[in-house]
Design a protein around this nucleic acid. Structure first.
Lengths: 241, 241
DNA sequence: CGCTGTGTTGAATGCCGTCAACGTCGGTGG
DNA sequence: CCACCGACGTTGACGGCATTCAACACAGCG
């Protein structure tokens, strides 16, 4: 934990980013140029990478791990806006013309992150063909996702919302095991509640019920979907009950 | 209604757009260049400007009127994603890398709209300094708004959500009258319900209650906020009851 | 003058949040 | 190594808020 936020490397290897969509089709030299402006940092599990309301002077790319993006209401209630997966840009307030971060980013597990100062944004846009477009596709995609979520919350019951959330999690961060697909990072009932606008109690009840039906298998901060098809039926409100 | 979507003008006056943030600080000649690629169309009340799922080959700017952006679930339930005000860009799927419109746009009143084919997007970005940034700030702002809405739906009760929605409407599209601030376009109980994820019945009950308290005055497709301060207290859950 | 879209209001149901109590796991420090 | 403690999870009971169901009122329009 002492190394949180500390630079652990100065010469970054171009292979780190060569396969990412944001830097698609770039030559090795151009990749080195991109990395020249970046730092790489480690962040211990549960530590903040940036905080809601803080000056947004950097932007980030997740090299490894999983990041939780969290917003807090004035009354102190939290909600999880999204999870960031490996290879994704995040904290790109600069692309939205924001001076402060609108949410906090917390390492869900130990993470490795590339960090650029905002001053590099312009440079990347100019030197990396398609970088700007990729960034804006990222934002556009998140706007879409977020609107889907509003629609879910408007039209679906809690059970459907939780089922949809789990399906999204296993699709984006699933790891195949012998029993099914497991969500690749520690996630509590409370976390799932904050993603779906409900309480940990209700989530616990749902998971218990699903477990007894053989749809999921779950443990402490761990969820495995054993019958995705069945879960989809539940999400679509067509589960035989 | 016969003129919906019809071009009614070919020589567009630069004064139409000179004051808009998207074209701030441009010379008259540059403005003319911008308008050369555009068409201006009228859209009758309740007519579609574009439809969800349709090929996104144009983008738009609302010159006058009000536009309702609507999404429909597979089950046929609708939700209102937002209202577009005069001077705003909309239908900018191209900026998000989308091939089809993710929502429908419906004229809430008779509207006048500037329309560009997607092929003009690149040109505007190059010739209009700050146009790209303004567009992306628009998208960023909408992402923010949408996330705020998710947070409201996660943490607030229906009464607070409806109060917040009304406050936003009067702020963005309010017209001062002798009695208070009136929402400048026809809006039904059903519309408000679709903005807040509730039913027209609940909205009707709330408005009736508020009317008897002197907070709002409402009629058929019309809402006037007579005591904004009081409504704010309700929205913040601090209304003396 | 009837029809359709809009709005109001009462009554009943039920989902899910709240309150409460207890169980369990895992890490930490003695 | 073991005891302890805090974080996480489970389950039951209860109740309230909002939806659902139903019936009616009213306005605008052809």
């Amino acid at each position: 934990m002492g190394q949180t936020g500390r630079i652990f490397m100065s010469g970054l290897d171009r292979s780190l980013i060569a396969d990412l969509p944001a830097f698609a089709g770039m030559t090795g030299e151009a990749l080195d140029l991109v990395l020249q402006g970046a730092r790489s940092t480690r962040h211990a599990k549960n530590s903040d990478i940036f905080a809601e309301g803080g000056i947004a002077d950097h932007f980030f790319l997740l090299l490894s791990g999983h990041v939780r993006v969290v917003r807090t209401t004035p009354e102190g209630e939290q909600m999880i806006a999204r999870y960031i997966n490996e290879g994704e840009l995040f904290g790109i307030a600069i692309a939205m013309g924001l001076a402060v971060y609108p949410a906090s980013a917390v390492a869900a597990v130990d993470c490795v992150v590339l960090t650029w100062p905002n001053s590099e944004w312009q440079k990347l846009q100019e030197t990396v063909p398609g970088f700007g477009a990729a960034a804006y596709r990222t934002i556009g995609g998140r706007l879409q996702e977020t609107q889907n979520r509003v629609m879910e919350m408007s039209t679906e019951q809690v059970e459907q919302r939780v089922a949809h959330a789990l399906l999204r999690l296993v699709n984006q961060a699933g790891r195949k095991t012998e029993n099914g697909v497991e969500i690749d990072f520690p996630i509590s009932r409370q976390d799932i509640a904050e993603m779906t606008g409900t309480t940990l109690h209700t989530v616990s009840r749902l998971l218990s019920a699903w477990e007894s039906e053989g749809v999921v298998a779950s443990g402490r901060q761990k969820v495995t979907v054993t019958d995705p098809h069945r879960l989809m039926l539940i999400a679509e409100r067509r589960a035989g009950r």
